[in-house]
């Protein structure tokens, strides 16, 4: 089986890392719509960010999903106490408090969301939202440039591949956490570093880690 290259995902990971570090947000993430327009997370800078996006996927509601559905910025100063999504609080990492999301568009249509969070309640102001829209616009240009350089279908394959293989990566993270007594963030960072050092895809390495784990259990 030929696995599509996931270069675009690597680029988007780097872009989200820049967003995360630039203005001191606690974390950032990127969600994209899959084949059936369901929103799934593609990039998250840390464990807390993954919990934000994972929790929304489980309950089917939340600020990032609302951002995508309304094609507009959605903010909450404390998602754990927001009456719009009472079922989220128990599923979130304790560090996720204030959340803001803006749509990522392509050709004028929303294709995903750029999300940031703060670990303490925070009133987002207009300048925060303007900056987020600017970053989402940069991400749109990265996607546009990628489309200009590649067949659109190949790009879609790359994104779909990444969305699908997140499950494998999550399972590998869980396995490494248990085996080496790591936090999820440490496990993910280690996995990604090893993949980069060996010039391999994170998903391929994750699958191999899970294969080795299964071998140990036999």
């Amino acid at each position: 089986m030929t696995v599509p290259a996931t270069g675009i995902v690597h680029q988007l990971e780097r872009a989200v890392e820049v967003v995360d570090t630039l203005f001191g947000y606690s974390g950032a993430g990127l969600m994209f719509a899959g084949d059936h327009k369901e929103l799934r997370y593609l990039v998250a800078t840390d464990d807390a960010g993954r919990s934000l996006e994972g929790a929304q996927l489980r309950v089917g509601r939340g600020p990032c999903i609302s951002t995508f559905e309304s094609d507009a910025a959605v903010t909450t100063c404390d998602v754990r106490n927001d009456p719009r999504w009472p079922e989220l609080a128990d599923r979130l990492h304790p560090d996720v408090r204030a959340v803001a999301g803006v749509p990522v568009r392509l050709g004028g249509e929303p294709v995903g969301t750029l999300n940031v969070y703060q670990s303490a309640p925070y009133e987002w102001d207009e300048s925060d939202i303007q900056a987020l829209y600017a970053y989402a616009n940069v991400i749109e240009q990265i996607l546009t440039a990628a489309i200009a350089a590649e067949e659109k279908s190949a790009l879609a394959d790359q994104l779909q591949y990444a969305l699908d293989y997140r499950v494998v990566i999550e399972r590998a993270i869980g396995y490494l956490m248990g085996k080496h007594d790591l936090t999820a963030a440490q496990a993910f960072t280690g996995l990604r570093k090893q993949a980069r050092d060996s010039r391999r895809k994170v998903a391929d390495l994750a699958a191999e880690v899970l294969g080795e784990g299964a071998g140990e259990l036999r």
Partner: peptide, 24 residues
């Protein structure tokens, strides 16, 4: 300085460099 990294990402994508279609 950090935003310059984003500019390079776009240029790499436009140039379709090997790094763009490389590893994740």
């Amino acid at each position: 300085r950090r935003l310059a990294e984003l500019m390079v990402m776009v240029l790499e994508a436009l140039a379709h460099k090997s790094t763009f279609s490389g590893q994740s």
